[in-house]
Write a protein that binds this DNA or RNA. Structure first.
Lengths: 359, 359
DNA sequence: CTGAAAGCGCTTACAG
DNA sequence: CTGAAAGCGCTTACAG
C-alpha cells in the first residue's frame, strides 16, 4: 500500500496523491475525490520514514529529562506528550540521569532521528553540551536550567523567589540554622537556590547554612535516592555545629527520604526540626506532619516549553526567549517549630502564581 | 555527510561502507580500516529514516500506557526506556488515558513509524483493538491486561493473590463490610480483583461489598483523580447499608484522594475505617496513618516485558507466552481497626515475591 | 492544475 | 571479498 497503488487506482500521478494527502498545492476537485476514494478503498498507511527521509525532518519531538520516575518530571512528560500528539507528533523520551555521557548519547540519537525539535533539561550549564543540536539546526527549548546560548528558548523557575518564600516562612518560625539538601550543585536550580539562601541569610544575624549535597552526586533514580539521601544528610548535619534545625530539600523524593531517616532516629518534625522542599507531591497533606513546600507550575512549564518550541520550529531564526515562572508557596505544618510558632504564618494559604517574560 | 562521502574518502563502494558500519558481511581488514578512518575524519551521522525506509523497520519501541503521570506507570516507562536505550532503540511514549480512540490513534502512529515492537497496557480486553498491530506484523507484549490473542506475550500481576493478601489482612482485623474503589471495571485488574473479592467474601458470613467505580470512568489524569475520586466514593458509600468499614483502592492516587476526603469529613483511619490499596508510593510510610498496600514488582514487570518483546522481535513466530508476577504485601497501619486489632497481623512485615510462568 | 523524474540515505540481492 | 545497481516510499522543483 503505497502512493503508487493509490495513484494507479485513482488514475493520477503519485505527485497528485502527495498533494492531496499532504494538503499542499492545488488539485482539481475531481482528482482530489478520486484520490480520497482510492485511499478509503485501500486502507493506506503512510510511511513516516519515507517522509522523514525526503523532508529531512521527522514529525517527532525529543524530550531529554533527568528521570521520568520523578513525579515532577513525569508530569512534564505527560503534558509535553499531549501537546505533541495533538499536532500529530510522536514523542521520544530520554532519561539522562543528569549524566553527561548519557545526555550526549541521547542528543546524538535524536539528531540521527532528525527530530523536529528538542525539549531538554540539560545536565550542565555549559552551552557546549547543546552544540551538536545547534550544528544540526535542531530547535531547542531548555527547561529548568540556565544556558547561555543564543539559539535556545528557556523556561525557568524563579528560584530566588521560591527560596525567599521558603526562607521567610522558616525565619518567621524562629529558625536560624539551615541545611540545604541538594542533588548536584552543578545544575541551575541548586546553584541559584544556594545563592539565594546565602544572600538571604547574610542579612540574618547568627544564621548558618550547611550544604548537604556533594556526597549525593552519584545517587541515581528514585529508589536509590529514597534509600540513600536521608541517612547521608543526617550523618553530615549531625556533625555540624550548630546543628541545623531547618532542612530545605531540592525535591519531594529527597524530602521523603530525609523524613524517613529523621523518623527512624526519633527526631520529631516540626518540634525538633523543620523540613520543607521545592516540589509538591500527592500525599504531602496527609503526612504525619503535612509538608510545607513550594509547588512548581508543571502544567505551565510544559505548555510554555511546547509553545516556544513550535514557534521556533516554524521560525528558526527567532532570537532567544526566556520565560521565568513564579512558584507558589503551600504552607502546611512541616515548616514550624513546636514552640515559638507564628501561628498566623502557619495557616494554610497560597499566594497567586505570576508569570514573567524576560528578553 | 552520507555513505557517498565516506565511500569517496575511503575509495570504496557505498556497499562496503554499509557492511563495515552495520557489521554485516565480510570486508577485508584494509578496507575496513580505510572506512573507519574516513568516518572519524568526517564526523558522520547515520540517517535513521533512511535505514528504516530501506529495512522497513525502525529501531524504535513503542510504549502505550494509560498515563505516565501515575507513579506506577512512570516507573515502568523508566525501566523500559533504559532497556531500549541499552540496545540502541529509541522509545516513543504514548498516553492513552485508557481511551479507546486515543489508543487507536497511537497504534496507528506506531505502525506508521514502523516500530520494531510495542509494549502496551490495552484499554480493553477485546483483542480486536490490537488487530492493526498484528496485521502490520508488529511484535506486541501486553502489560497488566489479559488479552486473548495468540500473537502477543503477556505480563500480568497475580490479581487473585494480591486481593487475597489484602483481604486476609482486613478480615483478620475484623472488617466485614468492604468497598472496592476502582477506575474502570472494564480493565483486567479491576475485573479480576473484583471477582477475587467476591469469591473470597462469599465464604465470610455477613460480608458485604460496595463497588465504587462506574461514576469514575471519565476521570482522567492524576490531578483530576485526586480532586474527584474521594468525594465521589464517599457519597456512594455513605448511602450504603451497612456502610463499609474497609476500602480497597485500585491505586495509590485514588487512595490518596480518598484519604483526603475522609480527613476532610473527620473520619479517622484506621479507627473508623480501614483503607488499603494495590500500589505502593514513596511517602506511604510517612502518612499520619501509614498505608498498608500490595506493591507491584515494577522493575520485574518492565524487565520481563522488554525481554519478551526482544525475543519475539528476534523470532516472530513464537507462541504466546504469559508471565504471572506475584506482588508483595506491605503491612503498615491503615489496615486495622483501633479496636479489635490483631496486633500480630499488624507488625510490619513482607512476604517474599514469587514469579510464575504460565503457558 | 498536472505528471515525469530526480533524489532523500541507506541496504541487499546479484554478479563477479 | 567487492561493487554497480535497484529500490524502500515519499516530496518537490521543473516543465508544461
Amino acid at each position: 500500500m503505497t502512493y503508487k497503488d493509490i495513484a494507479r487506482a485513482a488514475q493520477v500521478s503519485t505527485a497528485t496523491v502527495s498533494r492531496v494527502l499532504a494538503g499542499t498545492g492545488q488539485v482539481s476537485e475531481e482528482r482530489r475525490d478520486r484520490v480520497l476514494a482510492a485511499v478509503d478503498g485501500l486502507s493506506y498507511r503512510p510511511s513516516r520514514a519515507a517522509r522523514t527521509l525526503r523532508r529531512q525532518r521527522a514529525d517527532t519531538i525529543g524530550l531529554i529529562v533527568s528521570d521520568v520516575e520523578y513525579p515532577f518530571v513525569a508530569s512534564i512528560a505527560r503534558a509535553v506528550e499531549n501537546a505533541a500528539a495533538a499536532r500529530g507528533f510522536a514523542l521520544a523520551v530520554c532519561n539522562s540521569d543528569e549524566n553527561l555521557g548519557r545526555e550526549r548519547t541521547y542528543i546524538d540519537l535524536l539528531i540521527e532521528e532528525q527530530v523536529a525539535g528538542v525539549i531538554i533539561s540539560p545536565a550542565t550549564e555549559d552551552p557546549g553540551a547543546l552544540r551538536p543540536l545547534r550544528d544540526a539546526r535542531v530547535p531547542v527549548v531548555t527547561l529548568d536550567r540556565r544556558i547561555d546560548a543564543q539559539y535556545t528558548d528557556n523556561v525557568l523557575l524563579d528560584n530566588a523567589a521560591a527560596t525567599q518564600m521558603l526562607l521567610a516562612d522558616l525565619l518567621a518560625h524562629g529558625h536560624r540554622h539551615f541545611a540545604a539538601v541538594v542533588g548536584t550543585t552543578a545544575a541551575t536550580p541548586s546553584r541559584e537556590r544556594l545563592e539565594a539562601m546565602r544572600s538571604e541569610l547574610e542579612r540574618v544575624p547568627g544564621a548558618t547554612l550547611v550544604v548537604a549535597g556533594s556526597r549525593l552526586g552519584d545517587t541515581v533514580g528514585v529508589r536509590q535516592t529514597l534509600e540513600t539521601v536521608g541517612p547521608a544528610v543526617l550523618a553530615l548535619t549531625r556533625a555540624a555545629h550548630p546543628e541545623p534545625t531547618a532542612y530545605v530539600c531540592a525535591n519531594a523524593v529527597m524530602l521523603t527520604s530525609l523524613l524517613e531517616a529523621l523518623h527512624d532516629q526519633g527526631v520529631a518534625v516540626p518540634d525538633d526540626v523543620a523540613v520543607v522542599c521545592f516540589d509538591d507531591m500527592p500525599g504531602f497533606s496527609l503526612f504525619a506532619t503535612p509538608v510545607t513546600c513550594v509547588t512548581q507550575p508543571t502544567r505551565r512549564i510544559a505548555t510554555k516549553a511546547v509553545e516556544l518550541l513550535f514557534s521556533r520550529m516554524a521560525e528558526p531564526g527567532l532570537p532567544s526567549r526566556t520565560t521565568l515562572l513564579t512558584p507558589e508557596l503551600v504552607t502546611r505544618r512541616s515548616c514550624g517549630h513546636g514552640s515559638g510558632i507564628d501561628r498566623a504564618a502557619c495557616a494554610s494559604s497560597t499566594n497567586e502564581p505570576q508569570e514573567q517574560e524576560l528578553t
